[in-house]
Write a protein that binds this DNA or RNA. Structure first.
Lengths: 251, 251
DNA sequence: GCAATGTGATTGATTTTGAGTGATTTGCAC
DNA sequence: GTGCAAATCACTCAAAATCAATCACATTGC
């Protein structure tokens, strides 16, 4: 194994997961601990990674930390997102919650003349390169797992904001209302609802009828639901009775 | 076997796999070690491949030769950033302003157990993959050119924050104080200064004596200056008289 | 013949490597 | 906080790999 080849390999491994343990690298590249250690020192020296106790972290440019999870959004999700994005009028102020579906919505908003408010880091990274979009970031404690800002700072910032439409992607929907799997987020999301005129839920039909950890809001607060055609007749009626406008997206 | 024919063969083999060991080539082209070595030197000389210890790497599009980049100025910035990051104690709350030098500081903070507050999107993206770092994002209008959040939302969020140290990278430093080339940012940066106990300026020596568009603060507000060894004796005295602790980073 | 060039082998110098050592740091129990 | 064990680290050292330099020989073309 060549020196540079091994270092390249280390770099690729590190870039892939963002963070690697020294022992992992020793095993995967088949070199001794000393050698890997020296390689890490070198790569740290040229600024490609950052040496940390027990391993190394990637600090290069090209990485996209959250892209990994969203691996190729399903076509269905794409269609839902496209339909939701079509609801947005030019010049509007749009509030976007975090989540893989709302991220897809954000991708469909690129290039439109809008004011977008969000607390989601992946969404920010998508829209930052769009010169027509004015971006307002809701700060706060960055929840590393999903890359959204929450907590008192986020709530306070949201209080000074007013938006035309809010897009959220629920973790579950029952007749009792919307649910989210992350209890920490709920407080922030409630403030989002208060700060927006219209609440639009984007969700695939599999979420209907399923609950989740934390209750977010009752159904009648929702103004519109964008969902795929897997929605049952029963649910169509529930939605209608709650006074929610329904957008069913064909396959 | 003709000379050029052999070299062409070496080139093809190298291109195919990206990396080749010298011993592999000796075996596959049937020439002696010395000859292959000479061929590699030649091919390296005309820029077709890159010579590495134990073999060679193909210099094409696919592989980014990480040795090439890293200009002198960048290296200097790296050293300044490393020295600045070394000032940070584990568990502290650190406030990081936007800028290329502070971004480098952030890279050196990856993996440290810290609470980091910042309004810079690039810095957030660097630190979000560091599990030991708690990230607090200052929201606001995202200024797309430099990727920092500013404006009233940012200022309001900063008011509820208190940090041990603040790192800023000035656009210019004169006896009158710090300057910044972006007038919009100044207001946000002033609030940062108010929210931090200690103000540390990271800058290369070329900024000393140069003004910029907007005045940020007087010199005596600064607690520490981290600068490269290009600083003149005259400036050392100015800095000293202003009561600023000085960290000069050797090459 | 003989100069020019390419080749392969040899040699000592240099670099890299893996293992071993003691020093530091970390996490955990108290 | 204090103390302790485990993990991790920086450092040294000898062996191995690789390198640059040199030399003798072969081939080619004049």
């Amino acid at each position: 194994m060549l020196v540079d080849q091994r270092r390249q390999q280390i770099l690729e491994i590190t870039e892939k997961s963002g963070f690697v343990a020294l022992s992992d690298l020793v095993e995967r590249v088949g070199a001794s601990e000393s050698t890997v250690r020296r390689d890490l020192d070198y790569l740290d020296g040229i600024g490609q990674i950052r040496r940390t106790r027990g391993g190394a972290a990637y600090v290069g440019d090209s990485i996209t930390p959250f892209e990994v999870r969203g691996t190729r959004a399903k076509e269905q999700k794409q269609h839902i997102a496209a339909a939701a994005a079509a609801l947005v009028e030019p010049g509007e102020t749009v509030l976007l919650d975090g989540g893989t579906t709302t991220l897809e919505v954000a991708k469909h908003l690129v290039g439109k003349p809008l004011q977008v408010v969000t607390n989601s880091l992946p969404i920010i990274n998508v829209l930052v390169s769009s010169p027509q979009t004015e971006l307002i970031v809701i700060g706060g404690f960055l929840y590393p797992k999903t890359g959204v800002n929450l907590g008192p700072i986020a709530v306070a910032a949201l209080k000074s904001i007013h938006a035309r439409r809010l897009f959220v992607s629920a973790g579950g929907i029952t007749p009792a209302g919307l649910f989210n799997s992350n209890a920490l987020l709920v407080e922030t999301e409630r403030q989002m609802i208060d700060s927006a005129e219209e609440l639009i839920v984007v969700s695939d039909s599999s979420k209907l009828g399923h609950s989740a950890l934390a209750h977010l809001c009752p159904l009648d607060v929702v103004d519109r639901l964008v969902v795929d055609e897997g929605i049952t007749e029963e649910w169509k009626q529930i939605v209608q009775r709650a006074g929610i406008e329904l957008t069913v997206v064909g396959k």
